[in-house]
Amino acid sequence: MSDKETLLEFPCQFPIKAMGVSSDQFDITVIEIVRRHVDDIKEGAVTSRPSKGGKYTAVTVVIEATSRKQLDAIYQDLTDHPDVLMAL
């Protein structure tokens, strides 16, 4: 899918969300994966929220997305990682 075939207009602010089993390293893992594709993650762009029971954590990173190709690569890397159960 090309940038012309998406409803998004680039560049744009875009939230990347990844969920996994809660651990001290999960937030760091998600941020490291996103940083492979984004030059600058702004202060306050990362939020983390545990599930009601605390077993899972959802990490959201708001980025300045530059293309559909960039987003696809981020999601691919996230879903390829064994600690990431789901990426939205």
Score class of each variant (00 low, 15 high):
Thr79Tyr: 01
Pro50Ile: 04
Gln13Thr: 12
Glu9Ala: 14
Ala87Trp: 10
Lys52Met: 14
Ser23Asn: 10
Leu8Val: 11
Lys69Pro: 04
Glu5Cys: 04
Ile16Ser: 10
Gly44His: 09
Ile63Leu: 02
Leu78Lys: 07
Val59Gly: 01
Ser67Val: 05
Asp80Met: 08
Arg49Glu: 13
Val38Cys: 08
Phe26Pro: 10
Thr47Gly: 02
Val38Tyr: 04
Gln13Val: 08
Pro50Lys: 13
Glu9Ser: 09
Met19Asp: 09
Arg49Asn: 08
Pro11Asn: 14
Ile63Lys: 01
Ile63Glu: 00
Thr57His: 01
Leu71Glu: 06
His81Gln: 01
Ala58Arg: 06
Pro50Gln: 05
Lys17Asp: 06
Asp80Leu: 10
Lys4Tyr: 07
Val46Asn: 08
Ala73Leu: 11
Ala18Phe: 08
Ile28Leu: 11
Ala87Tyr: 15
Gly54Trp: 13
Val38Arg: 09
Leu8Ile: 09
Gly53Met: 07
Lys69His: 13
Arg49Tyr: 06
Gly54Thr: 03
Asp77Glu: 04
Leu7Thr: 04
Ala73Asp: 11
Ile31Leu: 07
Val61Arg: 00
Ala58Phe: 00
Thr57Cys: 03
Thr57Ser: 01
Thr47Asp: 04
Lys55Gln: 04
Val61Leu: 01
Ser67Glu: 08
Phe10Ile: 06
Arg49Gln: 15
Gly54Asn: 06
Tyr56Asn: 13
Phe26Asp: 03
His37Arg: 07
Arg49Ser: 15
Val30Asp: 04
Ala65Gly: 07
Ser67Gln: 09
Leu88Arg: 06
Ile31His: 03
Arg36Ala: 08
His37Tyr: 12
Ser51Arg: 06
Lys4Trp: 12
Gly53Cys: 02
Asp80Trp: 04
Ala45Asp: 15
Glu32Tyr: 02
Leu71Cys: 03
Gln13Ala: 15
Asp40Lys: 06
Ile16Cys: 10
